[in-house]
């Protein structure tokens, strides 16, 4: 029995489900559009060649600004199905410039998005300490459960379990209850964070 093609299909399916693209922290005015992009990205029949023009159309219609246009294109490029690392890196750089030019009240959140994207690229390429630097910067700019989770995932990849536990304890004291609940859910379901599961609830 030749299992190689089956392995590839199964692993590909699992890989695609391991890549999360939440839009919870996005500016509310653009959140619905970004969620639609996320949904289309994760559709089984996703075609990047069709998805990209559709994202550009959302931008042309004014539903997303240029920062989010570039963010969405990066997320597509870095997705397991596409895995175009150089394009993903280029788009993150372009997104940073767009965020700086846009400025305004969402500057920190927009730059946190860039940091997160760069961290994910480093993480997916196996450079976990570099990823940790980017994820930490993202967390400094924007305190969300997603950013905490990425920091913890990078620390655990580096074998820094004690430090991860210390951060978790700090999170219990400082993050809002809803964010703590979000993080708790991530730890309960994410195998990369399994080492942080304990008898005590967050």
């Amino acid at each position: 029995m030749d299992h190689s093609s089956l392995y590839e299909r199964i692993l590909k399916a699992v890989d695609e489900r391991a890549y999360f693209t939440p839009a919870d922290a996005v500016d509310p005015a653009q959140r619905d559009a970004m969620r639609e992009i996320g949904a289309r990205l994760h559709a089984p029949d996703m075609d990047p060649a069709a998805l990209r023009p559709w994202i550009h159309r959302l931008h042309a219609e004014g539903r997303i600004d240029r920062v989010h246009l570039l963010s969405a294109l990066h997320v597509v490029a870095a997705s397991p199905k596409v895995a175009d690392w150089s394009e993903a890196a280029r788009l993150a750089g372009e997104q940073e410039l767009a965020a700086l030019e846009l400025g305004g009240p969402h500057l920190d959140a927009n730059l946190a998005s860039v940091d997160r994207h760069r961290g994910v690229l480093a993480f997916l390429r196996g450079h976990h300490s570099v990823a940790l630097d980017h994820f930490t910067r993202a967390l400094e700019r924007q305190r969300t459960a997603e950013n905490v989770g990425n920091v913890l995932a990078a620390l655990l990849k580096l074998g820094e379990i004690e430090e991860a536990e210390e951060i978790l304890a700090q999170v219990r004291r400082t993050l809002s209850p809803s964010m703590v609940a979000d993080l708790s859910r991530a730890i309960d379901t994410d195998p990369d964070l399994a080492a942080l599961r304990g008898p005590e609830p967050l």
């Binding site: 693209t21 839009a23 996320g38 994910v120 969300t144 990425n150 994410d190 990369d192």
Partner: peptide, 8 residues
């Protein structure tokens, strides 16, 4: 698989 969150 590398499980990671690349939120927008």
């Amino acid at each position: 698989a590398e499980r990671i969150s690349n939120g927008f």
